[in-house]
Amino acid sequence: MVKLAGKEVGQTGYGLMGLTWRANPPSQEQSFRAMRAALANGANAWNGGEIYGSPERNSLHLLNEYFTKYPGDADGIVLSIKGGFVPGQMFPDGSEKNVRRSIDECLKVLDGKKFLDLFECARLDPKTPVEITIGTIAEYVKAGKIGGISLSEVNAQTIRRASKAHKISAVEVEFSLWATDILENGIAQACAELDIPIIAYSPLGKGFLTGQIKSFDDIPETSFIRLLPRFQRDVFDENLKLVKEVEQLAAKKGSTPAQIALAWVRAYSGRDGLPIIIPIPGATTEERINENMTEVTLSKDDVAAIDEILKKTTIIGGRYHDAGMALCEL
């Protein structure tokens, strides 16, 4: 077990995907089954967002409903919530006024049914110094209204600046077999130096590394990943080569590609001076969560073999389109 915001969590968390980036979110019943399965499997680091959905209906509303039905689960879960955007828009506003609005709204919707362990602005506001944003959140920590502060998609310099303003409990960044940037751009190094755990979102490459998406046409028409550069028709087959390599190793191990991808992320946790890394795969069904939480052990030779595959593999296209990448400090 490792600690996050002062509480013990499993090596794998759960991206609260019940209402995230989906035109047709699953039913409450299905979401609750998935959430219960996550907790039963030891995935007690839950990650959601005010930005996942609309101001009227987002992750926090689902959480309120869940903890109304299962109040006994609240204390065992470490909850991290992303906010700090302009209400109803996908653009950051890290000003004191908006950060207060965002945290207050999150606390209002949770309605005391679950303590907010970590709050993070989903992206850094380029117009507001990070010290102001962090200082504002810190007031809520000091008042005992939230447990700690996380950062999301920020670079090493910002991590260090923010840490001088207040203790940072976690840094959330994308990390997977096809998003290894943090190993070279100083982010992992900075987190290790400052003893900050990394929360690895999209450890399954937004579903690509599961092996379930064989062609562009397999992506649901309502899915936002249809818009992402790495999923486009002209690069799809080239990027799929990595998945095929993972599938071959999975077959040898008697596991699934998703399990291999998650095992590789976990293998990097604390390795060679790296920080603790907690992957948070998103899932909407009990079956998928049970699959993700079935741990596969990779030997040193397995990890080395995968690393060699990565060295000779070129992923084509950015993680997001240009506008999206402009909000990622990498």
Rank of each mutant, 00 (worst) to 15 (best):
K253Q: 00
S169K: 01
L177W: 14
I134V: 15
D111I: 07
H61F: 15
G15N: 05
T133E: 06
P281A: 02
I168C: 01
D302M: 09
F175Y: 15
G112Q: 11
N44L: 08
L19Y: 13
S269M: 02
F216L: 01
I149K: 15
L60A: 05
E105F: 03
R33G: 07
I199V: 15
Q28G: 00
K167C: 07
Q30I: 10
A192Q: 11
K3R: 14
I289A: 08
E139H: 04
A170P: 03
E247Y: 06
K206W: 02
N185L: 06
I77R: 07
W178C: 14
I134F: 09
L240W: 09
A156R: 07
R33W: 10
M1I: 07
P229N: 02
E329R: 10
Y268E: 04
R230L: 05
L107N: 12
D302F: 08
G10Q: 00
A156I: 01
T313R: 13
A258L: 00
D73M: 03
K167V: 15
M90H: 12
Y70L: 06
T284K: 03
I306T: 01
V243Q: 01
A43G: 14
R288M: 09
G112I: 14
E184Y: 09
T128C: 10
E105I: 03
F216N: 13
K69S: 10
E131S: 12
G144A: 08
L63R: 01
P26C: 11
E29T: 15
A179D: 09
V78K: 08
P275G: 03
A138V: 04
K127N: 13
V303I: 09
I309Q: 11
T285P: 04
S299C: 06
A138C: 05
F175W: 13
